[in-house]
């Protein structure tokens, strides 16, 4: 598993597609209401999956309990962690649930890359 993180509009997907040779049809873009397809090569906008989970009262970590099933996957998630604590309780829960999930995925990942203004920064 490879993790690609970074702020909004930083070029995360563009980087992942080029670096890991991912085609458009291999990219699963998460939505605010929906589950994850097992065996996906690339999960994009993981933060929307976590948002859907929080809205449904589900822990998003559950989808990754069989971590081995995601070993070949490139997971892309937006960094939503550096702003002011949101006033909306759901947004607070979303931020925390996403953070907890990334903390669970990071140790399992072969690589963790942060994208800053289109430039990769290797964190792991």
């Amino acid at each position: 598993m490879h993790l690609v993180i970074g702020g909004a509009y930083q070029g995360k997907l563009e980087y992942a597609k080029e670096k890991f040779n991912i085609k458009d049809e291999d990219v699963f873009t998460c939505t605010e209401s929906g589950d994850l397809p097992q065996g996906s090569k690339c999960l994009y906008r993981l933060e929307l999956f976590t948002l859907s989970c929080v809205r449904r009262g589900i822990d998003p970590c559950g989808a990754f309990s069989d971590i081995g099933a995601w070993s070949g996957c490139v997971i892309i998630c937006e960094d939503i962690f550096c702003g002011v604590v949101p006033l909306d309780p759901l947004a607070r829960e979303w931020r925390e649930a996403t953070g907890r999930l990334l903390n669970k995925l990071s140790p399992e990942a072969c690589s963790v890359t942060r994208i800053f203004c289109g430039i990769p920064q290797k964190l792991k």
Binding site: G6, G7, A8, Y9, Q10, G11, E78, D79, I80, F81, C82, G83, V84, P86, A91, R92, W94, R95, T98, C117, G118
Partner: peptide
């Protein structure tokens, strides 16, 4: 670019545009 907030269209447009200029 690292917020847990949904912005209105104008602010979103500004952020997208600034990110494109930064990149």
């Amino acid at each position: 670019y690292s917020n847990a907030e949904t912005f209105d269209e104008m602010t979103g447009c500004y952020m997208r545009s600034l990110a494109a200029a930064d990149r």
